[in-house]
Design a protein around this nucleic acid. Structure first.
Length: 433
RNA sequence: GGAAGGGUGGCUGAGUGGUUAAAGGCAUCUGACUCGAAAUCAGAAGUAGGGGCAACUCUACCGUGGGUUCGAAUCCCACCCCUUCCGCCA
């Protein structure tokens, strides 16, 4: 959520920054300003009436104390009708506030000034490249073929169990998935200083609201119900990313400055409806309804936000470097950024069998946008309450990492070599048919 | 699912209709003492939203939402959450 004071004081600046996203959100500003104006007007009026009522009520109390019953009764008659006026105005103020906040919750974050202007993914500038596309003396296979020949994934039976867009990892496939999770968590906790957490996989709607996934993208997530009780639907949702529970850990808290920075990492499965998205329904692991991910979350002082952002990006890149994978880092342009983000880098890993780059990590600084939504603050040394920056980054998404790994390290004989840092977690240096 | 108890400020914990923003304690800040610190003593200090150039001032907030009343942390109703016990259960 943006700061209403910023919208009030610099509406043109806010409109201009929103316009760079190209989604037309700046058109909401007028309605927000109008509702805000109505709210303040009603508030000024009703608060004057309340002040009167409070004063008279105190006088009545004093008179009662002195047993001057008649005088007290006279005062009561005086304020009798104030209540109705107050109730009516209260309702007006509340209605205006509700309208203002509904609109505010639909506004995305303002892009940071360092973000490249652009309309779509084609305008995303490439920041750097690590390694180079591997050369093969044979035609590299797709992960789909490798997974079938090595029996890593049973696509057909996964569909039998849950429909398209789900994966059944088998034998070395399941063990590789588990080894990757272990490898990632060990890397981030031991080398990069993150504290591991293992959060619930279902959360209440407030959490989704807090990170900005609700209300705008409500149709993209899985709601659950207990048993067959239809009215339970909507009390809990399957998490689309570990960001949702982890970033909300300190929701509605007032932290002390000494507690910052906070670094969390955690493994969870991620559930995505992917309604209308291309790729679901075809075989493969690129776009699925459920995938594993190790997520990084930071809660930091605003002045440290962007330095921490770069460090988090480096933490995610380290994963691919250790696994010997070629990748590139791109900065998402203003038109391609996520709703809550002020600045995002994507890491795209090369998948030789696909002949394309796959997004395996998205590292964002949401600044204080999420902190405002979830009312997470910290008390600074000087005593003022401030909103921290909240950052999130995939460290990394697993299904696509799995794809890049088997496609990159496949051998002419159809086997897959396991990079050295992963061997101790998997217990082998090669997977053969 | 059943029963009982409970939700008060950064934390803890009093408070059953009228100067209660709310005692006490902890933590925090300022001053005194000290070479400095600790301890001790004195004092300050909630959060949010309005109005005002400002000094300042008003309003709201005791789990949430309603209700009763001139006036509600306090009384009534509904709901949510937590704890313990029972039932079921990995």
């Amino acid at each position: 959520m943006l700061d209403i004071k910023l919208i009030r004081e610099k509406p043109d600046f806010v409109r201009q920054r929103l316009a760079t996203r190209g989604a037309g959100d700046e058109s909401l500003i007028d309605g927000i300003l109008q509702a805000d104006e109505q709210r303040r007007k009603a508030l000024a009026e009703v608060e004057t009436l309340k002040a009167t009522r409070n004063r008279v009520s105190k006088e009545i109390g004093a008179l009662m104390g002195q047993k001057k019953i008649a005088e007290a009764e006279a005062k009561k008659a005086e304020t009798k009708d104030l209540g109705d006026k107050i109730a009516a105005l209260d309702q007006q103020a509340k209605a205006a506030e509700t309208k203002r906040d509904e609109l505010m919750l639909r506004l995305p974050n303002l892009p940071h000034e360092s973000v490249a202007l652009g309309k779509s993914a084609e305008d995303n500038p490439e920041i750097r490249v690590f390694g180079s596309k591997p050369e093969f003396a044979f035609k590299p296979k797709s992960h789909v073929d490798l997974c079938e020949s090595l029996k890593l994934i049973d696509f057909a039976r996964a569909a039998k169990l849950s429909g398209s867009g789900f994966l059944l990892y088998t034998n070395w496939g399941a063990r590789l998935e588990r080894a990757l999770i272990q490898f990632l968590l060990e890397l981030h906790t031991r080398e990069n200083g993150y504290t591991e957490v293992s959060p619930p996989f279902m959360v209440n709607p407030e959490c989704l609201m807090g990170v900005g996934q609700f209300p705008k993208f409500k149709d993209q997530y899985y709601g659950v119900a207990e048993g067959d009780k239809a009215d339970e639907l909507g009390k809990l949702y399957l998490i689309p990313t570990a960001e949702t529970p982890i970033a909300n850990i300190h929701r509605d808290e007032l932290l002390s400055e000494k507690q910052l920075p906070i670094y969390y990492c955690g493994y969870t499965p991620c559930f995505r409806g992917e309604a209308g998205a291309a790729g679901v329904g075809t075989r493969g692991m690129i776009r699925v309804h459920q995938f594993d991910k190790v997520e990084l979350i930071k809660i930091v002082k605003p002045e440290d936000g962007y330095a921490e952002h770069e460090k988090m990006l480096a933490n995610a890149e380290r994963v691919l470097q250790l696994l010997g994978l070629h990748y590139r880092v791109v900065m998402l342009c203003t038109g391609d950024m996520g709703f809550a983000s002020a600045k995002t880098y994507d890491i795209e890993v090369w998948a030789p069998g696909q002949g394309s780059y796959l997004e395996v990590s998205s590292v964002s600084n949401c600044e204080d946008f999420q902190a405002r939504r979830m009312n997470l603050r910290f008390k600074s040394e000087s005593g003022e309450n401030r909103f921290p920056h909240i950052l999130n980054g995939s460290g990394t998404a697993l299904a696509r990492l799995f794809v890049a790994l088997v496609e990159t390290h496949q051998q002419a004989d159809g086997s897959v070599k396991i990079p050295e840092p992963l061997q101790k977690f998997l217990g082998t240096d090669v997977i053969r048919a």
